[in-house]
Simulated scan of single mutants.
Amino acid sequence: MRPITVVVTASGAPGTAALLRGLRENGEREVRLVGTDMSERSVGRHLCDAFHLVPAGSDPGFADAIRAIVEREGADCVLPQSSFDLEGLAQHRESFPVPVLVSRPDAIFRCNDKAETYAFLHRLGLPAPAFRRVSGAAEVEAAARELGYPDVPVCFKPVFSSGSRGFRVLDPTVDRARQLLDERPGSVAMRLEEAVELLPAEGGPDLLVMELATGGERTIDGIADGERVLLGHPKTREAMRAGLAMYFVTLDDPALMAIADLIVAELGIEHFFNIQLVGDHVIEINPRISTIVYQEDLDLPYLGVKRALGEITPEELVALRPRIRPGRTALRYFDQIEWDA
């Protein structure tokens, strides 16, 4: 098969090394990888065949910068990794000369706006946390008390966030001395009084105050065509470090796949997706690639690229479902590289 070139955005993301390796070790063809990132201290600079600095995904010039790289490098497709890159790419995807593996703008908006996400989950009858959309300290306090604080912990986060940024648990039993002396910086738990003190009295960013979902974490990862899940599987999400899961086990759970099908159909998600649950509650829908549990005979990122290029049909992807191996386990770990400046 002919070699292809793939532009991978946010190539400093934690999953970059495994993703690049998965694309290279596809067993069919040579894949040339072009990394982009807003930081020159990106591992993609060292692991990709070419690398380009670009503006932040929220910058109005981001899509133009990626399009110029596509044309300069003769790329065959664009594979975004970061939630922050999705909106700009989605708005301009039709202007690219090659496929951009991103859903339509309305799907991106409804996933990124967590209040909209929870509202349509409730309309679909899917389990999602009770929530209030608020801004300012006074509204945060009122919403927290409506949801049961201080009798039960609640939580809040920005309406748009990614990778646990801005997420805090409001828990009246927090031991501040223990946090100070025994825990690493960046604890996600605090008392409501502390949050009220730090937030502006009125206004500020829109926040989501919500019921605290509890229980084991699971995600559903896969490839969709805007109407259904073509190929994917659930997995556990365990051993959190610095807000990242480090241990995963694939599951055989038809009920979770049925939830994914409903969400994909409602939103019209295309290409890669990641749906996150805590206990029975759906808490995140990410219309992008996330951490993948790789198999030597089932390379999801490469298959998603082939689908975007029109080299494999939806039904051919569906036919690969029996290859998924429940119990397949992934352990993430920290690594490093060295070079002479």
Results as ranks from 00 to 15, higher is better:
Cys77Gly: 09
Ser58Pro: 00
Gly61Asp: 10
Val98Ser: 10
Glu71Thr: 00
Arg93Cys: 02
Asn112Val: 05
Cys111Lys: 07
Arg133Met: 15
Gln81Ala: 12
Asp106Asn: 15
Asp85Cys: 12
Leu101His: 02
Asp113Lys: 06
Gly125Val: 05
Pro80Ala: 10
Arg72Glu: 12
His122Asn: 14
Val102Ile: 11
Phe84Trp: 08
Ala119Glu: 15
Tyr118Lys: 11
Ser95His: 13
Pro60Glu: 09
Glu94Thr: 10
Gly61Trp: 09
Ala90Arg: 01
Cys77Ser: 10
Phe109Ser: 15
Ser103Gln: 08
Cys48Thr: 06
Glu94Val: 05
Arg93Asn: 06
Pro99Gly: 10
Phe62Ser: 02
Leu86Thr: 03
Ser135Val: 08
Ala68Arg: 13
Cys77Glu: 04
Ser135Ala: 13
His46Leu: 13
Ala128Pro: 01
His46Glu: 12
Ala130Ser: 09
Pro80Val: 08
Leu121Pro: 01
Glu71Ser: 00
Arg123Ser: 15
Asp49Glu: 04
Leu86Val: 01
Pro105His: 13
Val54Cys: 07
Pro60Tyr: 09
Pro97Ser: 13
Gly136Tyr: 13
Pro80Ser: 12
Ser58Lys: 09
Val100Ser: 04
Arg45Val: 05
Asp59Arg: 06
Leu53Asn: 07
Lys114Phe: 10
Pro60Arg: 11
Ala50Arg: 07
Ala63Gln: 03
Ala56Thr: 00
Gly125Asp: 07
Cys111Ser: 14
Phe84Asp: 12
Asp49Phe: 03
His122Leu: 14
Asp59Thr: 05
Phe84Asn: 10
Gln91Thr: 04
Ser103Trp: 04
Pro80Trp: 07
Ser58Asn: 08
Ile66Pro: 00
Leu121Ile: 05
Pro127Ile: 10
Cys111Asn: 10
Ala119Tyr: 13
Pro55Asp: 10
Arg104Phe: 05
Ser135Cys: 11
Ala56Gln: 00
Gly44Arg: 03
Leu101Glu: 03
Ala65Cys: 07
Leu89Tyr: 02
Pro99Arg: 09
Arg45Ser: 07
Phe96Lys: 09
Leu101Ala: 05
Phe96Asn: 06
Ser83His: 04
Asp59Pro: 01
Leu53Trp: 08
Gln81Leu: 15
Ser95Ala: 14
Gly74Ser: 12
Cys77Ala: 13
Ser135Gln: 14
Glu116Gln: 14
Ala63Trp: 01
Gly125Asn: 07
Asp76Pro: 04
Ser82Glu: 07
Gly44Thr: 05
Asp85Ile: 06
Cys77Val: 08
Phe84Cys: 06
Leu124Met: 15
Leu121Val: 05
Thr117Pro: 03
Phe120Met: 14
Ala65Asp: 03
Val100Ala: 05
Arg133Leu: 15
Leu126Glu: 09
Val134Arg: 10
Leu79Gly: 04
Glu71Val: 02
Arg67Val: 00
Asp106Ala: 15
Ser135Asn: 13
Asp59Cys: 06
Gly136Asp: 14
Ala75Pro: 00
Ala119His: 14
Asp59Val: 06
Arg110Gln: 12
Ala65Thr: 06
Pro99Asp: 10
Arg67Gly: 00
Ser83Val: 05
Phe84Pro: 01
Leu86Ser: 01
Ala56Arg: 02
Arg45Trp: 08
Ala128Asp: 01
Leu53Ile: 12
Leu89Phe: 06
His52Gln: 03
Glu71Ile: 01
